[in-house]
Nucleic acid binder design. Structure first.
Length: 592
RNA sequence: GCUGGUGUAGCUCAGCUGGUAGAGCAGCUGAUUUGUAAUCAGCCGGUCGCAAGUUCGAAUCUUGUCACCAGCUCCA
């Protein structure tokens, strides 16, 4: 037997070994549990088991105890290379069907890792050399969850136990602290505290209701993007939220996307059986296509860029809903560009430029570009191989031209075409897609779209679907977490709060507020009659960027004593100057 | 949809092994007229998510259901 190999970081080895120790502990306590896979993760490790009864959180305590016993035994971790036949014989002797299936997919050499004499697992390693190298005070079993064997929901659901593991107890504490900090940024928590949006059981899950403050965020973002789009030749349109199901039969949604759609609204049972009636729209494209199709289009009109903040409804599975990042009704900053094949590359680049510029204005930097291509093995896509190749190549060409960092992800495409997606992370490190650009040769075909070319011939346009924000809901969720609720001045629901020291100054405060409102500054007066300290505290906790204290001196001097969240007290400034400065900063999307 | 967990006043939470609920903040009222992160006092506020069941008796136990949280699958 050779000793454990040396590749992989120490922490990865520790975590991977922890997963084996956990598997050993589980099999000791639950002899019927079968082992499957158990890798290390970014924060720790997990292991998937097949057990007749699901594990509960109580079981985790017992498992942890058993793990500590194993660690304290100081079992050597050793690697053994065996022949395929030998591995198969031993796994069969243990009666571990999942391991046998794993073995079938493995390349030589086949290695087994032993924990002392008592337990072994088919595994590629690497591991630490002894359980002594694991600190029993630097790990925690965190949760149990169902996970499908091989990630396939049609196969057995296994029990996954997640743990976190570190080199020292201090690192474990740091991790817990980081996680607590992240929870503070959670947009669901901040959204409630700052009064931005609510959910109502009476309305339904995944259907956010926007309060006045939250609506400021939405409309400010909308206005901002609309301005950018006007500059770039986009045309605004408005379309209904429902349509005949037939429209979605032509687009292919009914055949390919039906399980994500709210059920058909049919007049009666006969209509239901005949699949006749109305549905809520899951996407805006078929509607914009109708507008394009409503007239015979000339090549002179292209590119035609139809844009709409279109609210769509998707029947997401209940377990997938969460906060604003995954909802059932959301507003896409959608646009569909109808272009000639020759215009495609240039227009695609312009779209990406718009998206990057918008992200820049929002100071969003932590994203990655994903080329979401089709899975060549799957049949869930519409359209010809040639069309797919052409559009995927167009996307690849574009990101290469721009010199962007990107990665390709087969199987992530929309059913009608490939996408360039912009992926962000939330406070808890979960990945979400925001912006997206898609090249589509298929819907123009299905809807038989045409334009008249220079030579008088009828030609087929190409479509670009694009949404820089992806959805307002998800974007705002990510923005809340990115800013930790501390919005930049131009986005802040309340930009200035005026704080009269005594009620004597209330009249003057209201007067100044009027002036600010007249200049488009979102100002409000604290009329609570509280003491100054309390008013400041309230303004700070509701994350108002600019506070203006007004006492007798300020009224006398027609001034405001300014305090900003970012810089603290700035001293007394003439009221007229403050109004101009705030209005100017908002217009430039700058700080006060 | 699946696995595990949670669900008590507007918010954050307490309520041991069953004996029909409590705090802080918020809100309202009064006093205080206050100068850069919480003035004091009083009052209001909950059929303990909902529905069945067990029990003399359920916020506490059982079942179902709804919602939320973590994860899986899926996705903007």
């Amino acid at each position: 037997m050779a000793s454990s190999d040396a590749s992989g970081s120490q922490l990865e080895k520790i975590r991977h070994t922890f997963s084996h120790v956990m598997a050993m502990a589980v099999q000791k306590l639950f002899p019927k549990a079968q082992v499957t896979i158990g890798p290390s993760t970014k924060q720790g490790f997990y292991y998937d088991f097949d057990n007749p009864d699901p594990f509960t959180e109580k079981d985790l305590k017992a498992i942890k105890k058993e793990m500590i016993k194993i660690i304290n035994k100081g079992l050597p971790v050793t690697c053994e290379t065996v022949s395929r036949e030998e591995a198969q014989r031993r796994i069969e002797a243990l009666g571990e069907p999942y391991k046998l299936e794993i073995l079938e997919g493995l390349q030589d050499p086949i290695t087994l890792y032993h924990l002392g004499e008592e337990w072994w697992d088919l595994c590629a390693g690497p591991h630490v050399s002894s359980t002594k190298d694991l600190n029993p005070k630097a790990f925690e079993l965190e949760s149990v969850a169902g996970a499908y064997w091989r990630g396939d929901e049609t196969r057995a659901q296994l029990q996954r136990i997640y743990g976190t593991a570190w080199e020292t107890p201090q690192q474990l504490e740091d991790y817990k602290h980081r996680r607590e900090e992240a929870k503070r940024r959670d947009h669901r928590k901040l959204g409630k505290e700052l009064g931005l949006f609510i959910f109502s059981d009476d309305v339904g899950p995944g259907l956010p209701l926007w309060t006045p403050k939250g609506t400021v965020l939405r409309s400010t973002l909308e206005d901002f993007l609309k301005q950018e789009q006007v500059k770039r030749g986009y045309l605004s349109v408005v379309t209904p939220h429902i349509a005949r199901v037939d429209l979605f039969k032509v687009s292919g949604h009914w055949q390919n996307y039906r399980e994500d759609m709210f059920p058909l609204m049919a007049d009666d049972e006969a209509a239901r059986l005949a699949e006749q009636g109305f549905v809520m729209k899951p996407m805006n494209c078929p509607f914009h296509i109708q507008i394009y199709k409503s007239e015979l289009r000339s090549y002179r009109e292209l590119p035609m860029r139809l844009a709409e903040f279109g609210t769509v409804y998707r029947y997401e599975q209940s377990g997938e809903l969460g906060g604003l990042t995954r909802v059932r009704g959301f507003t896409v900053d959608d646009s569909h560009l109808f272009v000639t094949p020759e215009q495609l590359d240039d227009e695609f680049l312009k779209v990406v430029d718009l998206i990057l510029s918008v992200f820049g204005s929002l100071k969003l930097k932590n994203f990655t570009a994903r080329l979401s291509f089709r899975d060549p093995e799957s049949d869930k896509y519409i359209g010809s191989d040639a069309a797919w190749e052409t559009s995927q190549n167009a996307i690849r060409r574009a990101v290469q031209t721009l010199g962007m960092d990107y990665f390709e992800a087969p199987g992530e495409a929309a059913f009608y075409g490939p996408k360039l997606d912009f992926i962000f992370r939330d406070a808890l490190e979960r990945e979400w897609q925001l912006g997206t650009v898609q090249v589509d040769y298929n819907l123009p075909e299905r809807f038989d779209l045409e334009y008249v070319a220079e030579d008088g011939s009828r030609q087929r346009p190409v479509m670009i679907h694009r949404a820089p924000f992806g959805s307002l809901e998800r974007l705002i969720g990510i923005l809340i977490e990115e800013y930790a609720g501390d919005f930049p001045l131009w986005l802040a629901p309340t930009q200035v709060r005026l704080l009269p020291v005594t009620e004597e100054q209330l009249g003057y405060a209201k007067q100044v507020a009027e002036q600010m409102l007249a200049r488009g500054v979102r100002a409000e007066v604290d009329t609570s009659g509280e003491r100054l300290g309390k008013m400041i505290r309230n303004a700070e906790t509701s994350k108002v960027p600019v506070m203006a204290v007004i006492g007798a001196k300020e009224v006398e001097a027609n001034a405001l004593s300014i305090r900003t969240r970012a810089q603290g007290e700035l001293g007394s400034i003439a009221a007229v100057e403050v109004v101009e400065r705030v209005a100017g900063a908002i217009a430039n999307r700058a700080d006060f």
